[in-house]
Structures are given as structure tokens and as C-alpha cells.
Design a binder for these strands. Sequence first.
RNA 1: GGUUCCAUGUCCGAGUGGUUAGGUACCGGUCUGCAAAACCGUUUACACCAGUUCGAAUCUGGUUGGAACCU
Length: 302
Amino acid sequence: MSVTSQAEIQRLLLPGARPGSGKATVITGPTASGKSALAIDMAMRRGLHIINADSRQVYHGIPIVTAMPTVGELAAVPHHIIDMLPLEAYYSAARFEADALQVARSEIDRCGEVLVCGGSMMYVDAFCHGIDDLPEVPDAIREATYADWQLHGDAWALDELGRLDPEYRAVVDPANMKRVVHALEIIRTSGATFTSLRTGRKRRRDFDIELIWIEMPRERLFGRIGARVDAMLAAGLEEEARSVYARRGLNSLNTVGLKEMFAWFDGSMDRATAIERIKKNTRVYAKKQITWHRRRLESLTG
RNA sequence: GGUUCCAUGUCCGAGUGGUUAGGUACCGGUCUGCAAAACCGUUUACACCAGUUCGAAUCUGGUUGGAACCU
């Protein structure tokens, strides 16, 4: 897909700490807005590399649902942090920050500029200003905490958090158990309160960052989403989904386009409904990306 | 032409005289780690006209539209 005249490119400069020390151009926008096409076009004309900032394209084995660049495009432009992990592997915004910065530094040393392209807003923000250095939770603690929560329930988890970190308990959304449990994991791993580790401090990079956001009338964006889903189906989405169906519980597969296919395979949804749901959920995803960016703009400019 | 039934928000659907059911869609929002995740919120009605009543989505009459059956 290409960027058309109906798309509007918004640019925002985040100056680095050391002027003249290079630049990262971050291309982002809602899903199906044409980020990849724009990035590849820029990369080819300027001889740049692209760092992928899509939380699912990091994995190997699901190129169709994630709308990964084609083999030809990958051959034409060097891509980083893409198609590199088994579906079972853990990955996170924090790891992305570290990995992406390492590539960015080496590319900026090489030619002065690097491109970052992707729609995972949390990854984009992690690259632009970093996130706190929390300890990584060992699998054993992650599993034990999850098991405790399953065994004792929400009320127990909330009480436990209130006992161990009353400050965070006061601000966390008590309906969002995923965050409650995560805080417990961090507390158990670090021995410190989550509050004390969550500084919210934003780091400034040495290099300049130019943030490019692709804006498009919603009706047009939604039309492109529908067309993209149809194209994925034509490209073999069903086969791809079947090939990973046995591992459907993995987080990397908790992805729009796969979970609906799995529901069809399970028999809990018919094929036509599944396809409609993929389109709908992709629209919802796009809206959440837009909301995220709106808030980002407010915090950066207002 | 006749008889019967039906008419609720984007859609589904409850509600037979007096606190805006509920779901879904749309829209909006939260956000420091699996984020394409997880979570939250708001809005949109009672086909139309007249009547009864303190008060009508709810009762009565008519109009319009639809469905089934009969001729």
C-alpha cells in the first residue's frame, strides 16, 4: 500500500541533547495507513536502514497477519528487529528500547540517520523517551504469581497489592487485573515497591528525533483496513493461522487476525463472522492508536 | 378485497400506566513493560396523528408500513 494524496503527513521534532549528533526519523500512524511503504521509499532514496517498531513483526512465522514487508522489500532495504524471535519468546517495550537504541547508534555512526517504522505506540514511545528500568520478571515468578491469582482471585490480588504497595494500589485501575498482577510480579522480583521503581522519568536522546505521523480521513482508513484484510485472506491468512493454531495460547498469537481465525477453527464462530470481526477489531485497533497519539501530542505540545 | 399479527435506538432485544433493561455497533477515554494486550466511559428509542389520564412505549380510535392466512 502506498501513501496517497489523501494522507496527511504530520511532523514533530524532538530535539536531541547534543545538536548535530545525528537523527532518527520515526514513522508511525494507525494500522494500514501506509507506514511501511513510506519508510521503504524514504530508506531507498536515502540509503537508510529501518528499525521495526511493531510488536508482532518481531516474531517469525506470522508474516501475513502482521503485514510484514515482502521478501523483495526486505532484500531491498535492511530491516532490524524483525522476523527474529520464535513465537514462544518473551519480548517487551523495554527490550525493544534497548535493542532499537543499539541499532540506532550504530546506524547513526555509519551514516547519520536511521528510520524507525511501526504502529506499536508503546514501542515508539520507549524509543523516543525510554521507560523505567524495571527488573525483568523471571518465568518462575511470573508463573507463580499468575497461579496465585487464579487460585485466590481478584480480591486477594488487590489486598496483596494494598499490603505490599498501598500507593500503587490507590492509583491502579482495580478492574484491570493484568496490571495488578504485573505489579505483584515486579514487587516479588525486586523486593521493592512498584511505586518506587516507577519514576516515569523521560530520557532525552543524544540524537534528534523527527516523529512522522500519518493522518488520514477515517472513512478512507477504514476502507483501506477492509481491503488489507481481504488481501491477507487472498495471501493465505487461513493457512498461516492453521500453521500456528496448536500454539494459540501464546501471547504473540493473541493478535487481531489470528484470534478470530482460531475462533472459527474452534467452531465458536463461522468464517464470514470471523472475517467481519477481523475487520472490526482492526478498526478498533486503529482507533486506539489514534487515541494514543492524540494524548502524546497533548503531552508534547500542550 | 377480508381476517389476524406486528411496528422500540445502528442492529438484536426486554418492557402491558409513573426510577433512561440488557447486549451490540458507533463514538470517546486510560496506559512504564507480553500493548495488535488489558481496562473504562458516553450517546442514540419507543412509526405517525388524535384521544383517555395528573401521567402513555405501555390503554382507545384512526393513518402509514410490514408479515401470515383466506377469497
